[in-house]
Amino acid sequence: MTKSVISTNGSIKVKNVNRIYVDANGNLVEALHNINLSIRPGEFISFIGPSGCGKTTLMRLIAGLDKPQSGELFLDNEKIKSTNFERGYVFQQANLFPWETIENNIAAGLKARKIYKEHKADVAEYIKLTGLEGFEKSYPHQISGGMAQRASLARALINNPKVLLLDEPLGALDAFTRMDLQDKLIELWERRGTTMVLVTHDVDEAIYLSDRIVVMTPRPGKIENIVDVKLDRPRNRNSSAFIELRKKILDNLHIATAH
């Protein structure tokens, strides 16, 4: 399967980024140390590493939700200074507005930007695209966790971001729902050509989805290795090439942890 859209926007550059914060006990904690990374337009890339290695910190910096002590981050050669609709963010929990219908949750960004009237038809399109037809008038408590995450994806994508940041959005789902949403993510990525950046603890998920996998060390977070995933799509989790690559990634993680 090949992508139907080849993107020319959505390149990310991370240059010499360091992030230090003060913990609850008043101690300085180095979360990220001298991170350098280039992400190509339309690429699907995953960050993987042990808990506390700075994966989510790096995502928050790209999103503009946080700032580094030193270094710079760029989207299409423009310095990232704050949040922007060009960088959509999907969290581990769906974070939908409980008092709004699924339809209104998806439209929230359009309404905040005051462009809802011009793009009203897009809401129905994204409901269809994410397989939520028939649930437009439902409220978040009336749908499953998997459906709620589909709504979160639709809410982020309807703003037509250059980059979609996925912070373990499938981590709380059961295995069947998780695999179903992995396929939905790939379908959306191939249709739209959006640059996608994923944080995950799941090696198989990273291999199944990504063009490249960034392996990070325990705190302070550094990039241990970047692994190219040169497997044809759709990918077979039981193929010998997939299993071999899984072993390579696990070996990289063990080396990163040893360091």
Rank of each mutant, 00 (worst) to 15 (best):
R192D: 07
R192I: 09
R192C: 00
R192F: 13
G193Y: 01
G193I: 02
G193K: 05
G193N: 09
G193D: 01
T194A: 02
T194W: 00
T194N: 13
T194Y: 00
T194C: 09
T195K: 02
T195D: 10
T195Q: 06
M196T: 06
M196H: 05
V197W: 01
V197Q: 04
V197E: 05
V197P: 03
V197A: 08
V197G: 09
L198Q: 13
L198G: 11
L198D: 12
V199L: 03
V199D: 07
V199S: 07
T200S: 08
T200E: 12
T200V: 03
T200W: 06
H201N: 03
H201C: 07
H201F: 04
D202M: 05
D202Y: 09
D202P: 04
V203W: 01
V203L: 05
D204M: 11
D204S: 14
D204K: 11
E205A: 00
E205R: 00
E205M: 01
A206P: 02
I207K: 01
I207A: 08
I207H: 04
I207R: 04
Y208R: 12
Y208M: 15
Y208E: 00
L209N: 03
L209Y: 02
L209D: 07
S210Q: 08
S210F: 06
S210W: 10
S210A: 14
S210K: 07
D211S: 11
D211F: 03
D211H: 14
D211Q: 06
D211Y: 07
R212D: 10
R212A: 08
R212G: 05
R212C: 07
R212K: 15
I213R: 03
I213P: 03
I213T: 08
V214W: 09
V214Q: 07
V214P: 10
V214K: 10
V214R: 08
V215N: 02
V215W: 05
V215P: 06
V215M: 05
M216W: 07
M216R: 04
M216D: 07
T217Q: 11
T217S: 14
T217F: 10
T217L: 12
T217P: 12
P218I: 11
P218F: 09
P218M: 08
P218R: 10
R219F: 01
R219W: 01
R219K: 15
R219I: 01
R219S: 15
R219Q: 14
P220Y: 11
P220W: 12
P220T: 08
G221S: 12
G221M: 12
G221D: 13
K222T: 14
K222I: 02
I223S: 12
I223A: 12
I223Q: 11
E224N: 14
E224L: 11
E224Y: 15
E224F: 15
E224R: 14
N225C: 00
N225I: 04
N225L: 06
N225G: 01
I226C: 13
I226Q: 13
I226T: 15
I226P: 14
V227D: 09
V227E: 15
D228C: 06
D228E: 15
